[in-house]
Simulated assay, not measured.
Amino acid sequence: MRASTFLTSTFFAATALAHGNIVSPPVRQAGAVTQQVCGAQAVSALTTDITGPLENVASNGSPDCNIFLCKGIQFEDNQNNVQEFAAGEQVDFAAEIPIPHEGPCNVSVVDLATNTLVGQPLISFASYADEALAQLPLNNTQFSVTMPTDLGTQCQQPGECALQWFWFGTNAQQTYEDCVDFVMTA
């Protein structure tokens, strides 16, 4: 009886933390540089619940830690995780959404130096992860984007650009974000 109660409680606690994240392609992960820039409390929040909203991440107040840019996770912790994409290439995404919160979502190319979008979103959902649905549409957890063909010389250096998955749960007032570092190849 105790083991059953413990397992049930552990399962409930683990799923109660979860909201949503990208599982493929590989996204930024917090490490030593993120801890140095954003603080141990931020890294603890980012690693304890990788699916949690940005509103749950408290930084140390450093101006170099922007929680709303790739969750504050620093590129230097992810230099070995840079993906290579070609113009016009289709990139498949997989997301986990254990606890849906309806709201808009998009995937965009972001200029990391300025935290601005490069062009238009590659995919947009006016209504994403609607908790009122009995089952989420497949395109909420499995979708593809086509890499832009008009980036010119942008996004050719590691650390310059990322694909940013950005989702805002309107009723929950919670923001979810993941970044895929990439370079454009010839």
Score class of each variant (00 low, 15 high):
residue 114 T to I: 08
residue 173 Q to Y: 09
residue 27 V to N: 08
residue 78 N to L: 03
residue 36 Q to S: 10
residue 10 T to E: 14
residue 8 T to I: 15
residue 163 L to W: 12
residue 8 T to L: 15
residue 126 A to N: 11
residue 102 E to G: 05
residue 178 D to L: 07
residue 11 F to E: 15
residue 127 S to F: 04
residue 57 V to H: 00
residue 157 Q to L: 07
residue 72 G to C: 11
residue 123 I to Q: 15
residue 82 V to T: 00
residue 113 A to I: 12
residue 74 Q to A: 07
residue 161 C to Y: 11
residue 149 T to N: 08
residue 53 P to N: 01
residue 85 F to L: 06
residue 2 R to Y: 14
residue 81 N to C: 06
residue 182 F to I: 02
residue 154 Q to C: 06
residue 130 D to E: 04
residue 157 Q to T: 14
residue 64 D to P: 00
residue 175 T to I: 02
residue 182 F to V: 01
residue 48 T to L: 11
residue 41 Q to E: 09
residue 31 G to A: 03
residue 101 H to T: 01
residue 53 P to K: 00
residue 160 E to F: 13
residue 26 P to A: 12
residue 32 A to V: 12
residue 56 N to S: 13
residue 154 Q to S: 12
residue 124 S to A: 13
residue 142 Q to W: 03
residue 12 F to A: 15
residue 164 Q to R: 15
residue 12 F to N: 12
residue 10 T to A: 15
residue 113 A to H: 12
residue 13 A to C: 14
residue 175 T to K: 04
residue 165 W to N: 07
residue 134 A to I: 06
residue 97 I to W: 04
residue 92 D to I: 10
residue 41 Q to R: 09
residue 130 D to T: 03
residue 155 C to V: 09
residue 146 T to H: 08
residue 169 G to A: 08
residue 138 L to M: 14
residue 34 T to K: 00
residue 165 W to L: 15
residue 99 I to K: 11
residue 16 A to S: 14
residue 79 Q to L: 08
residue 14 A to Y: 14
residue 124 S to C: 10
residue 71 K to T: 01
residue 84 E to Q: 07
residue 98 P to T: 08
residue 95 A to R: 03
residue 96 E to M: 01
residue 132 A to M: 10
residue 69 L to Y: 10
residue 179 C to I: 03
residue 81 N to W: 02
residue 76 E to Q: 14
residue 159 G to Y: 14
residue 28 R to W: 11
residue 38 C to Y: 03
residue 45 A to D: 07
residue 61 G to T: 09
residue 169 G to K: 01
residue 136 L to Q: 07
residue 2 R to T: 15
residue 118 V to H: 10
residue 170 T to D: 11
residue 128 Y to W: 03
residue 2 R to E: 14
residue 77 D to F: 12
residue 45 A to V: 01
residue 4 S to N: 14
residue 23 V to P: 09
residue 180 V to P: 04
residue 28 R to I: 13
residue 85 F to E: 03
residue 156 Q to W: 00
residue 12 F to P: 02
residue 184 M to D: 00
residue 142 Q to N: 07
residue 133 L to M: 09
residue 49 D to K: 06
residue 19 H to C: 13
residue 77 D to A: 05
residue 48 T to M: 08
residue 166 F to R: 12
residue 180 V to G: 01
residue 112 L to S: 09
residue 61 G to N: 05
residue 104 P to I: 00
residue 86 A to N: 05
residue 77 D to Q: 07
residue 158 P to N: 05
residue 34 T to F: 00
residue 47 T to I: 03
residue 89 E to G: 05
residue 61 G to W: 04
residue 70 C to Q: 06
residue 146 T to C: 05
residue 31 G to N: 07
residue 15 T to M: 15
residue 29 Q to M: 13
residue 76 E to A: 13
residue 133 L to W: 00
